[in-house]
Amino acid sequence: MKVFYYLVGRLILLLATLLAVSIAISAIMSLLPGDAAEQILGAWSERSGATLAALRTRLGIDQPWYVQYADWLQMAVRGDLGNSLALSVPITPILFDRLANTLLLAIPAALISIPLSLGLGVWGAVRKGRPIDHGISAVTLVGVSVPAFVLGPILIVVFSGYLQWFPSSSGLIQGSGATHLFLILALPVLTLTTESLAYIGRMVRASMIETLKSPYVRMARLKGLPERQVVLNHALRNSLLPTVTVIAFNIGWLIGGVVVVEQVFNYPGIGSLLLFAIEQRDLPLIQATVFVTAAAYCTANLLADIAYMALNPRLRN
């Protein structure tokens, strides 16, 4: 029963945080120099003050930011995220379309990198000091040090330029077949996977090394348990605890930090949508995009906390 109350509490906290986040965005964005009307009119905005004012009224951005926010909130809870100022179309469909695209990158990357990094991390920890561990450590170190916009181009040069296996740009076309989809997604997913793999792998290895030094692991060995059982049944479970937090953070990164990868590969995901929105000073679009991203990130953290509780009996009681 206590668990239930805890979950409800966390959910409320989540919603409160998101609310605070959206208010914060609104307030901050109101400080942006220039607004959507100026962006739309471009060079003409200086010429005709009347046209500018009329456009502002039509777009509804002549109101103070908190009024705009209240309106937005009203519609948002009903699922209507308003219209894009720059594109003059409803936001919700575009947003979720782009979100789906990003998830097409993030989910395969997560699915591949998480189990693989667990395996590598454990392997490196168990064989600490040996050549294979040095190898894994070196590779993961380089992996976290190479930024996405360095790795991406390198992959493009190798796989697209020389080997010509994949296209260098990943613009999605509606109704692409599965093979085409695979070709387009391959390099960006590979980039994301490599970064995640390196990051999580290092954390898993460090956590595992610590756990293997624990008194209860020592005791398990002194009870005569075979090493494999010691590692799997005793060490692994306990070192998963801190790893869960790391994985959650990484999923958040996969959703938020993917903006760079999308730029490198010209991929129409939610990150590039946000960049576009910022350039256009398209407040409703910015609001919606950031909100959805933050929501995904917070949800990932909440799931991590739940998993942490599930794995740690001390917290369950």
């Binding site: 008194p215 209860y216 005791m219 009870k223 001390r314």
Partner: peptide, 13 residues
């Protein structure tokens, strides 16, 4: 072996 500190010698999970 009966170890010195049972709290740490037993796996908490």
């Amino acid at each position: 072996l009966v170890p010195q500190e049972p709290a740490t010698a037993l796996n908490p999970t």
